[in-house]
Each structure stands twice: as structure tokens, then as C-alpha cells.
């Protein structure tokens, strides 16, 4: 019973009618996906569909594989030696392991925000437009426009518009994380992956980023990994619960938090283990 969580009381959360959700097509499809670091199996038989322009939260205790799955969506794990996988992940109908698909172009479509904010040691402006620079955009006007748009979307524009040429390393922790979000959306990706984006931030900065996720949802499909049940309940439309590399339950957030079908899920969200 939902004695711990009471999400619907928050006015910020709009629980969409089921019919509307049904109208959306599935955008990311993960099918029978397994993944190994060397001999160690990190993911086992994951199958889930993520509809477009929705927020999906991955929850579960540390080491359950949620970050691994997230990092596979843009093939960030390719950097690790000795990895292997089975099954398939498709984005908009095309496998991310398609030999004809370059990893670089995949990552341009799938932006990522990391747990620890990682701005480059460059100016704020250069940080935001980096993704445009790497595809060869030179036109100053285009860059400036993209910079402003992204910073506005990341709710950072008003705070930094007078010091775009200052080093990004002079920003506060929350500003840095929003800068990283602005950087990730500057080249208009289709999907935004967020790996515990608020874990190092104070509640005010966290609140700002959660509001941001709500707004970004209008344009991007967002997958967020979080350790905070409240956050998952507040921001996501759907939630997947993982445990020991297995997908225990995947459903609408409402269902997962109000009426989970698995005992393990209920135990985790009510704080009895994890």
C-alpha cells in the first residue's frame, strides 16, 4: 500500500490519461538485451519500450544495471574494454548496432548528461556550442543563436548572459549541471539520457532541474536514472525497476508507485531494502 509515497498530491505532476499515452509510438525498443563486462553479466534479458516525448525513470539499488543500460543507449560503454552484448536496441526502428550506423552520429542524436557535471575548461559559450563546433558549424550568428536557445531551455540564460566568455569552471554546481544540459541539447538531439543528474546538487538546484525536465519533455524523449524515489515519481511518466541486472517491473509511474505488481518493487519503493 502506498503508505510512503503520495505522488499525486503534487500539483506539478500531470498524470496523463492512458489514451494519450497509448497514442504515442514507441521510440526506443529494447529487446531481450543482455550485456557483459568481460565475464560478468551486467544486464540480463531486458525488454522495454520507451515512447517518444515521455520521461522514463530507471530505478533500483546500486549495481542493478540501470546506469549500464542507460550508457548503452548511446554506446558510451564502447569505451570499456572487453564488453559484449546480446539482443538488440533500436531507436526509431533502427538498431544502434547497425554496422552502417556510425557511433558518432548515434551520439549526436542521443545526448547525455552525467552524474558529475563535467564542463570543459573553456568559456561558457564554447561549452554550449561544442556539439555544433564538432560538426563544423563556423557561422558566429548560428552559434550565438544556438547558445542562447539552449541556455534558455536549460533555464540558465538569465544567470550567465553577461558572462558568456568567462570560464565555465567558475559556475556553481547547479549552474554547471544546467550548463551540461544546455550543452547536451545544443545540437537538438532526439533523446536525452540523464545519469543521476541531481545526485550532487542541493534541493533548490534539484528543483530547477526537475522543472527543466518537465519542459524538455515537450521536445525530447528523456531517460533518467535516479536514486531518488521522489524524483522518479515527480518527473517520470514511466518507471522501470531493476534488480541485479534484471528488469523486475516496467510500467507507468503511477502504477509502479501506487500499485506495483511485484513484491520486490514494493519493498524497494517503500524503503524496505535497497
Amino acid at each position: 500500500m502506498p503508505q510512503i509515497m503520495n505522488p499525486p498530491s503534487s500539483s506539478r505532476i500531470k498524470v496523463r490519461p492512458a489514451a494519450e499515452r497509448e497514442g504515442r509510438k514507441d521510440y526506443i525498443t529494447i529487446k531481450d538485451y543482455g550485456f557483459w563486462y568481460g565475464q560478468k553479466k551486467a544486464l540480463d534479458a531486458i525488454s522495454l519500450d520507451i515512447p517518444e516525448r515521455q520521461v522514463v525513470a530507471f530505478i533500483g539499488p546500486s549495481g542493478c544495471g540501470k546506469s549500464t543500460l542507460l550508457r548503452n543507449l548511446n554506446r558510451m560503454n564502447d569505451l570499456v574494454d572487453g564488453i559484449s552484448h546480446e539482443g538488440d536496441i533500436t531507436i526509431n526502428g533502427r538498431s544502434i548496432y547497425d554496422p552502417g550506423l556510425e557511433v558518432i552520429s548515434l551520439r549526436r542524436r542521443v545526448g547525455m548528461v552525467f552524474q558529475k557535471s563535467n564542463p570543459f575548461p573553456k568559456s561558457i559559450f564554447e561549452n554550449v556550442v561544442y556539439a555544433l563546433r564538432v560538426v563544423g558549424v563556423r557561422d558566429r550568428a548560428v552559434l550565438e543563436e544556438a547558445c542562447e536557445t539552449s541556455l534558455r531551455k536549460a533555464a540558465l540564460w538569465d544567470e550567465v548572459k553577461d558572462r558568456l566568455d568567462d570560464s565555465a569552471l567558475g559556475l556553481s554546481g547547479g549552474q554547471m549541471q544546467r550548463l551540461c544540459i544546455a550543452r547536451a541539447i545544443a545540437n537538438r538531439p532526439e533523446i536525452l539520457l540523464m545519469d543521476e543528474p541531481c545526485s550532487a546538487l542541493d534541493p533548490i538546484a534539484t528543483g530547477k532541474i526537475e522543472e527543466l525536465i518537465h519542459e524538455l519533455k515537450e521536445q525530447f524523449t528523456i531517460v533518467i536514472v535516479t536514486h531518488s524515489m521522489q524524483q522518479a515519481a515527480r518527473v517520470s511518466d514511466r518507471t522501470a525497476f531493476f534488480y541485479l541486472g534484471k528488469q523486475i517491473e516496467y510500467d507507468t509511474t503511477e502504477k509502479i508507485f501506487m500499485n506495483p505488481s511485484q513484491a520486490q518493487t514494493e519493498a524497494y519503493i517503500s524503503g524496505r531494502f535497497g
Partner: peptide, 24 residues
């Protein structure tokens, strides 16, 4: 993190080395 951030924005390995790793 800096390396990953660059690669995640779609930069190639060489661009990451040239624009991020070498200056840093």
C-alpha cells in the same frame, strides 16, 4: 568525465583529443 562529455556530444576521438584532452 571530460572525455565522456566530449564523446557524448558526438565528437570523434580525434576531435576529443584535439579540443579537450590536449588543452587540458
Amino acid at each position: 568525465g571530460m572525455r565522456e562529455a566530449s564523446l557524448a556530444t558526438g565528437a570523434s576521438k580525434w576531435q576529443t583529443i584535439r579540443d579537450i584532452l590536449l588543452p587540458a
